[in-house]
Protein backbone atom coordinates (compact mmCIF):
# COMPACT_ATOMS: atom_id res chain seq x y z
CA UNK A 1 0.00 0.00 0.00
CA UNK A 2 1.41 3.40 -0.94
CA UNK A 3 1.77 6.01 1.74
CA UNK A 4 -0.97 8.06 0.08
CA UNK A 5 -3.34 5.10 0.18
CA UNK A 6 -2.48 4.76 3.85
CA UNK A 7 -3.49 8.38 4.47
CA UNK A 8 -6.86 7.73 2.84
CA UNK A 9 -7.30 4.47 4.71
CA UNK A 10 -6.74 6.10 8.09
CA UNK A 11 -9.08 8.97 7.29
CA UNK A 12 -11.73 6.45 6.25
CA UNK A 13 -11.32 4.50 9.47
CA UNK A 14 -11.97 7.63 11.50
CA UNK A 15 -14.91 8.78 9.33
CA UNK A 16 -17.20 6.16 10.86
CA UNK A 17 -16.44 7.33 14.39
CA UNK A 18 -19.21 9.64 15.44
CA UNK A 19 -17.81 11.89 18.15
CA UNK A 20 -14.66 12.73 20.07
CA UNK A 21 -15.01 10.03 22.74
CA UNK A 22 -15.21 7.40 19.99
CA UNK A 23 -12.21 8.84 18.18
CA UNK A 24 -10.13 8.96 21.34
CA UNK A 25 -11.20 5.46 22.35
CA UNK A 26 -10.17 4.20 18.92
CA UNK A 27 -6.80 5.92 19.25
CA UNK A 28 -6.26 4.37 22.68
CA UNK A 29 -7.14 0.97 21.21
CA UNK A 30 -4.56 1.42 18.45
CA UNK A 31 -1.99 2.14 21.12
CA UNK A 32 -2.84 -0.88 23.19
CA UNK A 33 -2.61 -3.13 20.12
CA UNK A 34 0.82 -1.87 19.12
CA UNK A 35 3.67 -4.33 19.66
CA UNK A 36 5.26 -3.39 22.94
CA UNK A 37 8.74 -1.94 22.85
CA UNK A 38 11.21 -4.17 24.70
CA UNK A 39 12.04 -2.71 28.13
CA UNK A 40 15.69 -2.62 27.08
CA UNK A 41 14.79 -0.07 24.41
CA UNK A 42 12.99 2.19 26.87
CA UNK A 43 16.15 4.09 27.65
CA UNK A 44 17.01 7.76 27.66
CA UNK A 45 18.80 7.62 24.29
CA UNK A 46 15.53 6.58 22.66
CA UNK A 47 13.44 9.18 24.44
CA UNK A 48 11.78 11.81 22.28
CA UNK A 49 11.92 15.12 24.10
CA UNK A 50 8.38 16.06 24.95
CA UNK A 51 7.27 18.04 27.95
CA UNK A 52 4.85 15.72 29.69
CA UNK A 53 4.38 12.15 28.52
CA UNK A 54 7.39 10.08 27.57
CA UNK A 55 7.80 8.71 24.06
CA UNK A 56 10.46 6.19 23.08
CA UNK A 57 11.32 5.59 19.46
CA UNK A 58 13.67 3.22 17.65
CA UNK A 59 14.01 2.23 13.99
CA UNK A 60 15.81 -0.11 11.67
CA UNK A 61 15.94 -0.68 7.94
CA UNK A 62 15.27 -3.88 6.02
CA UNK A 63 15.51 -4.10 2.23
CA UNK A 64 15.46 -0.35 1.87
CA UNK A 65 12.34 0.09 4.02
CA UNK A 66 12.33 1.75 7.41
CA UNK A 67 10.54 0.07 10.33
CA UNK A 68 9.71 2.09 13.43
CA UNK A 69 9.08 0.87 16.97
CA UNK A 70 7.74 3.10 19.69
CA UNK A 71 5.99 3.37 23.03
CA UNK A 72 4.63 5.97 25.41
CA UNK A 73 3.61 6.05 29.07
CA UNK A 74 0.38 7.92 28.27
CA UNK A 75 -2.48 6.11 26.56
CA UNK A 76 -3.64 8.80 24.13
CA UNK A 77 -0.09 9.70 23.15
CA UNK A 78 0.67 6.01 22.69
CA UNK A 79 -2.28 5.66 20.32
CA UNK A 80 -1.17 8.65 18.27
CA UNK A 81 2.35 7.26 18.29
CA UNK A 82 1.01 3.91 17.03
CA UNK A 83 -0.72 5.74 14.17
CA UNK A 84 2.54 7.42 13.19
CA UNK A 85 4.48 4.15 13.40
CA UNK A 86 1.93 2.45 11.17
CA UNK A 87 1.93 5.39 8.77
CA UNK A 88 5.67 5.75 8.24
CA UNK A 89 6.81 2.13 8.64
CA UNK A 90 7.45 0.06 5.52
CA UNK A 91 8.46 2.98 3.32
CA UNK A 92 11.77 4.04 1.89
CA UNK A 93 13.58 7.02 3.43
CA UNK A 94 12.80 9.34 0.51
CA UNK A 95 9.07 8.76 0.84
CA UNK A 96 9.24 9.35 4.59
CA UNK A 97 11.23 12.53 4.14
CA UNK A 98 8.82 13.96 1.56
CA UNK A 99 5.53 12.98 3.21
CA UNK A 100 3.74 14.71 6.03
CA UNK A 101 1.03 13.07 8.14
CA UNK A 102 -1.78 15.24 6.76
CA UNK A 103 -4.40 12.74 7.92
CA UNK A 104 -3.96 14.01 11.49
CA UNK A 105 -5.86 17.16 10.51
CA UNK A 106 -8.65 15.25 8.83
CA UNK A 107 -9.22 12.95 11.79
CA UNK A 108 -9.60 15.95 14.09
CA UNK A 109 -6.35 15.47 16.00
CA UNK A 110 -4.42 18.37 14.50
CA UNK A 111 -3.97 20.03 17.88
CA UNK A 112 -1.93 17.06 19.05
CA UNK A 113 0.63 17.55 16.30
CA UNK A 114 1.08 21.23 17.02
CA UNK A 115 4.73 21.90 17.82
CA UNK A 116 3.63 23.93 20.81
CA UNK A 117 1.65 21.07 22.27
CA UNK A 118 3.50 19.53 25.17
CA UNK A 119 2.97 15.89 24.22
CA UNK A 120 6.01 15.20 22.12
CA UNK A 121 4.15 14.04 19.02
CA UNK A 122 5.53 16.79 16.79
CA UNK A 123 9.03 16.01 18.04
CA UNK A 124 8.36 12.35 17.35
CA UNK A 125 7.54 12.97 13.69
CA UNK A 126 10.69 15.04 13.44
CA UNK A 127 12.70 12.24 15.04
CA UNK A 128 11.19 9.71 12.59
CA UNK A 129 12.38 11.85 9.70
CA UNK A 130 15.82 12.18 11.26
CA UNK A 131 16.01 8.37 11.34
CA UNK A 132 14.99 8.27 7.65
CA UNK A 133 17.65 10.82 6.83
CA UNK A 134 20.27 8.82 8.70
CA UNK A 135 19.32 5.60 6.89
CA UNK A 136 19.40 7.40 3.56
CA UNK A 137 22.88 8.74 4.25
CA UNK A 138 24.08 5.33 5.40
CA UNK A 139 22.66 3.74 2.25
CA UNK A 140 24.38 6.21 -0.03
CA UNK A 141 27.71 5.55 1.67
CA UNK A 142 27.55 1.76 1.40
Amino acid sequence: MSIQEKQERIVKEFKVLQDWPERYKYIIKLGSKMDPLPEADKVDENLVKGCQSQVWLTADMNDGKVEYYADSDAAITKGLVALMVRFFSGHDPNTILTTNPDFIDEIGMAQHLSPTRANGLASMVKQMKIYAMAFKTKESLS
Binding site: S53, A74, I76, A118
Partner: peptide
Protein backbone atom coordinates in the same frame (compact mmCIF):
# COMPACT_ATOMS: atom_id res chain seq x y z
CA UNK B 1 -2.83 4.86 37.17
CA UNK B 2 -4.15 7.11 34.41
CA UNK B 3 -1.40 9.33 33.03
CA UNK B 4 -2.01 12.99 33.94
CA UNK B 5 -1.82 14.10 30.29
CA UNK B 6 -4.48 11.56 29.34
CA UNK B 7 -6.71 12.83 32.13
CA UNK B 8 -6.05 16.45 31.16
CA UNK B 9 -6.87 15.78 27.50
CA UNK B 10 -10.24 14.26 28.35
CA UNK B 11 -11.05 16.94 30.94
CA UNK B 12 -10.31 19.57 28.28
CA UNK B 13 -12.84 17.92 25.99
CA UNK B 14 -15.33 18.41 28.82
CA UNK B 15 -14.49 22.12 28.97
CA UNK B 16 -12.42 21.80 32.13
CA UNK B 17 -9.01 23.52 32.14
CA UNK B 18 -6.51 21.96 34.52
CA UNK B 19 -2.75 21.74 34.38
CA UNK B 20 -1.01 18.41 33.98
CA UNK B 21 2.61 17.40 34.20
CA UNK B 22 5.43 18.18 36.57
Amino acid sequence: DIHPTDAGTILDQKGIAVRTGH
